[in-house]
Design a binder for these strands. Structure first.
Lengths: 336, 336
DNA sequence: TTGTACGCGTTATCAG
DNA sequence: CTGATAACGCGTACAA
């Protein structure tokens, strides 16, 4: 009962043809009579034959795996389950991959053991890898080792990347709050090591400058908890805050909770705007105004680029973001 | 500049040893003098040698990939990015996998093309696959083709699975609401095709029966939108509802929003309890009381089982769930 | 249209 | 401790 898996040899023997013919028949190659092909497939099915993946890629030289490499700040992978961003990346990649025969391989590295990533990625001789949350220096190293690499989000100059207009998005968010009559707009920024977070910080600063407001900045690390804390501190120090821009939806959710806990009504007393338009944005109460980041599309674009074989240095795909107005932001109610 | 990747042959030649020795040296096998090992590694590093994955698994016969197979109800992968459950599964698997040299391969199938999964999984000669959201009949087929398979969530009898005490959890949720003084507890159920959803339905019914309340059931498909709709309808038909149990956090979030939109206060007028304890539960306003499903631990357990080599028929790992009380549920306020 | 023969990069077996 | 040499399962020129 423990007989080994049937190989293509067994199929060939069973169908009374040579291995080569069997191979051609199974791979739908040209130059096989219909009768033979049918017989071969028949036998293959009877035997329960399934091609050996490793042998196939070895022999053909073709690769059919594309890697998703994410580096986590934490030592464990919990972030992956907590922040919706990662799931969206996977979704975008799977969508483009499903039609092809290509597989998605997932690899995570803690920041501390990130040097391992360089080795790990090197054996990706194939279609390449999508980089998520990889700091620019490491991205550069990876790109040196393996050219077929493309980063999700801004990174080192030479490394191909697909980016979003984070600066403009944050700027628009501030403009939106200002247009609602908000005159004391604070920001909860993301981690400084994250290039997206930095872009959004710049966008906020630009926006604030544009409308002539004062910079009221707190910061966190893309987590709800840190945003809750930062918001609480901010409104204690600056009670007149009437608008909050958070670097991501998760943080905006924390801000809304902190505001509510402090007795402020959202959006009446304080309007808040997030960034991402992840599932979080639709789940808060009230539903969140946010800047939509087309993560799925970006991931899909990166994947497609890899599939199409090439990414030369300096390649950039840039995506627009756009403001989605929901109920967490509104004009200041008229005094009755 | 386009010289092909160095093979172990190149390393062996460079270090002036045989392939076999080079292989042993690199793989830290026994029976290699320290001097030789050092020289080989040196050369390997200089050449930028990295072992060929396919060749290695082919030659050794060892497999180092474990699959995560998820079937999606939708035609696209968007669900993966929307529902936190999937990310948590990945997180749990990655955590156990990171210490080993094993890789995680991701595969998604729409329900319609699910038959493809049977073929796809078959070439997983290796450590096996974790099944997520795979309907029992398909799970059975997969298990027939490849024994090293284990389902996350209840499934067909013969297929190994790790399960959670969904029935008890739902029952406890209802009990909790009752103890808070709620006497009209409604439920928003998940899709009937989902075994977890069905267990929770049963648990709700049990609980309702236990405390002598009436069954007030609506249903959705694990999405926020459907829960919003169902809740709206339910409270129109039964205005005296003072408690809601939802089959997952995402649905509970929709319920909270619907309740708020209808002018009910949560938790004062209506208390709501979710299921999962995903990131969603912490992001709602108020933060959500929910039944914690240890998804990461379950996924980790399944992965470990696969890693350990074996899953005989009938194997079951069962996990307890527990109620996490937050602010979306509270006793009925005393009339003043 | 089909078969022969070789190579893909490694690991494993057996001598030395 | 080290070196030939044979698998591993399959794809594919090339020949028939």
């Amino acid at each position: 009962m423990q007989d080994r898996k049937p190989t293509i040899n067994d199929v060939a023997r069973g169908a009374d043809v040579s291995r080569a013919t069997a191979s051609r028949a199974i791979n739908k190659g040209p130059g096989v009579s219909e009768a033979v092909r049918f017989r071969v497939c028949q036998v293959a099915k009877e035997l329960g034959y399934t091609p050996n993946f490793a042998a196939r890629t070895l022999a053909s030289g073709r690769q059919n795996t594309i890697d998703l490499i994410v580096v986590a700040y934490d030592t464990d992978a919990s972030r992956f389950g907590l922040h919706p961003y990662f799931g969206r990346v996977v979704a975008g990649m799977m969508d483009t991959l499903s039609s092809t025969g290509t597989h998605l391989r997932l690899r995570m590295f803690a920041e501390s053991q990130a040097h391992l990533a360089a080795d790990a990625i090197a054996d990706t001789t194939g279609l390449g890898a999508v980089l998520v949350n990889v700091p620019p220096p490491l991205a550069t190293r990876l790109h040196q080792r393996c050219k077929r690499v493309i980063s999700l989000g801004a990174t080192a100059p030479h490394v191909p990347a697909v980016e979003a207009e984070n600066v403009l998005g944050a700027q628009e968010a501030v403009g939106h709050l200002h247009s609602l009559g908000r005159r004391h707009v604070a920001a909860i920024h993301g981690p400084t090591v994250n290039t997206c977070a930095e872009s959004r910080r710049i966008g906020y600063l630009n926006g604030i400058h544009e409308v002539g407001q004062r910079d009221i900045s707190g910061s966190g690390n893309f987590s709800r908890e840190t945003a809750y804390l930062a918001t609480t501190r901010l409104i204690e120090a600056q009670p007149d805050i009437d608008g909050v821009f958070a670097a991501c939806d998760l943080m905006a959710a924390g801000a809304i909770q902190a505001l509510t806990a402090a007795g402020r009504r959202v959006p009446d007393d304080v309007s808040v705007v997030g960034f991402d338009d992840s599932v979080i944005a639709t789940c808060t109460n009230p539903p969140m105004t946010t800047v939509r980041l087309p993560v799925e599309e970006m991931a899909a674009a990166a994947t497609r680029k890899l599939l199409d074989g090439g990414t030369a240095d300096y390649w950039r795909g840039v995506f627009a973001v756009n403001l989605i107005v929901r109920d967490s932001s509104a004009a200041i109610p008229a005094l009755s």
